[in-house]
Design a protein around this nucleic acid. Structure first.
Lengths: 239, 239
DNA sequence: CGAACCCTTGAAATAAGTCAACCTACGTGG
DNA sequence: CCACGTAGGTTGACTTATTTCAAGGGTTCG
């Protein structure tokens, strides 16, 4: 499943064989993280970065009242904390929202990669920049979209991201999130998420039931969300 | 004023003379950008990155109704779009919120730097990662803090950032933002920003008048905002 | 079978938005 | 030097989106 990562990188810019090999060889063997486990804690010093192979991961911060804000979701093929390579201690927590397979790459090996493979380094850097672009789109959602558009936008984003890793079937996809977790992504309360999902259902745009997102009218959904996938940098058009 | 950038980088990790020289030499000579000018447009292909020497810059996205969300503010010593080096076309606009001096570094020269100076490259990468950390904190604000805490937090963040570049006097600082622009940062309406500022004033926490932020009670303000500067990575404690 | 968790819905409360008026400061041009 | 226009700040009254509180219903799993 490291192939997913390679495919993503190479969609941007092809790798030389030696770059590809160096990257693949740098990973430790995969391990399992149980659902619900907060496997990286804010402030904790890290010496490796984690690639998600399967499952779903969330990064979150919280306030003293206990309210959580999920700042990013990660799907298979995503680095969950490539930025910990330069930050060392993270400003947020990382939780497995479903059972996850992950593979770690020690920072010492990443450092070797940066020394020997500047082109590969730029592509890893690119990945963290795409991450930041998603944060910006979420800021726009949280700051300016209403509840319906916010949730619609999230469903569109996930569809676009999951599609390129082959995890979209019949226009729908598995999303192992509770409504409470959806609320933590969108800055809403669980109750309001529930009512908003009802609206989206009644408007025949999407249904979300039993961890399955069934998109009824993708175009309509995009329109409501004002979704434009450019910020995901999935196409190599502008390298 | 490139010294500010160097100081920031070296607060994290000292540079060798040749790294410092290579970086400094890569910049073109400074130019002026007029206040209010949107000097980088979403989607536009870029071939250089911009360092802010003086003034104030905002990065924003907007929705069709014309509502803007500012996703980041930049102060002197910040790269405004170092991420354009790998993204090439940006997902957001960049506006000068005050008259600004900027210095550009062409991407071709950045590419040379990455080839010859892996350690410097990691530090530039670090800068973009700090940028992303600020986005995450803003997501937390937009998603979970109420209006008072949101504005208080922004004032705390700017104080912390401006302090290390020597732009805080007597506990206060210049902030050339209108209330409308503040609203664009915080996801609020201008009217509500106005009322919220009044509250902060009445609670003797901060005053914001005539582009001057006068912090009356920094501790109280931090408390209201739940501000913890760790996410700014200003101290080298965890390298 | 029961417990835990999650989803659903209603009614009431509240934070923030909207609309509109008025005020102030500032700069420009007559 | 005043007159005017513009942009930004302030306030009030009213509306609305979202939250809160609370209760009830459905699933799943040990």
């Amino acid at each position: 499943m490291i192939e997913t990562l390679l495919a993503r990188i190479e969609a941007r810019d092809p790798l030389a064989d030696r770059e590809r090999d160096a990257l693949v060889d740098a990973f430790d063997s995969p391990t399992l993280v149980g659902s619900g486990r907060v496997f990286i804690r804010q402030g904790q010093r890290l010496d490796r970065s984690t690639l998600l192979l399967s499952g779903l991961v969330g990064r979150f911060k919280d306030l003293s009242r206990g309210e959580r804000q999920i700042s990013a979701l990660h799907i298979p093929g995503d680095f969950v904390d490539l930025h910990s390579f330069s930050l060392k201690a993270l400003d947020h927590n990382v939780v497995a929202l479903a059972p996850c397979m992950v593979a770690a790459i020690p920072h010492t090996r990443l450092e070797n990669l940066t020394r020997e493979h500047p082109h590969l380094t730029r592509l890893l850097w690119f990945l963290t920049n795409v991450d930041a672009a998603m944060h910006r789109e979420w800021e726009l959602s949280l700051g300016r979209r209403d509840a319906v558009a916010r949730i619609a936008h999230l469903f569109c984003e996930l569809r676009a991201r999951l599609e390129i890793v082959g995890l979209v079937d019949e226009g729908g996809y598995t999303l192992p999130l509770s409504q409470a977790a959806l609320a933590e992504c969108t800055g809403l309360t669980p109750v309001h998420v529930n009512r908003t999902l009802k609206q989206l259902r009644e408007r025949d745009l999407v249904e979300f039931r039993q961890k399955w997102v069934c998109i009824k009218d993708f175009q309509g959904l995009q329109q409501v969300a004002e979704f434009d996938p450019a910020y995901l940098y999935l196409r190599p058009e502008c390298q």
